[in-house]
Design a protein around this nucleic acid. Structure first.
Lengths: 109, 109
DNA sequence: TTATTATATCGCAATAATACGATAATAGTT
DNA sequence: AACTATTATCGTATTATTGCGATATAATAA
């Protein structure tokens, strides 16, 4: 029926999946990298830089905000976006632990 | 029109997004963790453990295979799945570098 | 207040993802 | 060869995502 059965999985599994989903679009990855590498974090600059319509960028920004990766502050009639350092490191740790869990052993395959 | 404009982004950005998309479902995260933590990597065991229909698990396994995270070997009438160590470390590095790119500085926000 | 600028939301069309029953394909067994 | 067991694929209903034009909202300027 086309709807994810989240109740079958652990909180941690759902959390990794939720963050991954936000990273699962190149525009959102590009927006993050833009915020990492420049100080031009005004929405208008992002729209110009990425090359998608303003409405589309706004939607992507909302998804990034929804998991706390970025935050915005009003600056005149504009909004200035940036990475939320604390949340960034939280997520970094989440994925670090996920990937770290692999230990080469297992006679499997 | 509902189709991602991949040509606007770099290869690296599309690659991060592609892997993230595969990790963007708790069932696939759960399958990976199952392969990490046990030796019961037969499809049938995965179906039983996760609690989704066999057809659905098969679809998820195919997506995990599509980016090389897992691989399967035929074992009688069954298929034994496991993590592909080399690819795992590649992806681990990809995400490590992505997250590492953040440096707290910026008077932004 | 009215106009201007910038961003967010709405509504819609196109596409993709999720889940599953039914069926096909593959390997082993009798 | 016929049967069994296991996994993969097909078809389909439902839901979610992507992208954008149009419009609404918010902040400032005239």
């Amino acid at each position: 029926m086309g709807v994810t059965k989240a109740e079958l999985f652990t909180t941690a599994q759902n959390e990794v999946a939720q963050i991954a989903k936000v990273l699962a679009h190149p525009a959102r990855v590009a927006i993050i990298e833009l915020l990492l590498n420049s100080n031009k974090c005004i929405t208008g600059d992002i729209v110009e830089e990425i090359g998608l319509a303003q409405a589309t960028i706004s939607q992507h920004l909302r998804e990034l905000k929804s998991v706390g990766i970025i935050q915005g502050t009003i600056e005149g009639t504009s909004v200035k976006y940036c990475i939320n350092a604390e949340r960034w490191h939280e997520i970094q740790k989440l994925f670090h632990n996920f990937f770290e869990a692999y230990v080469t052993n297992k006679d499997c395959c």
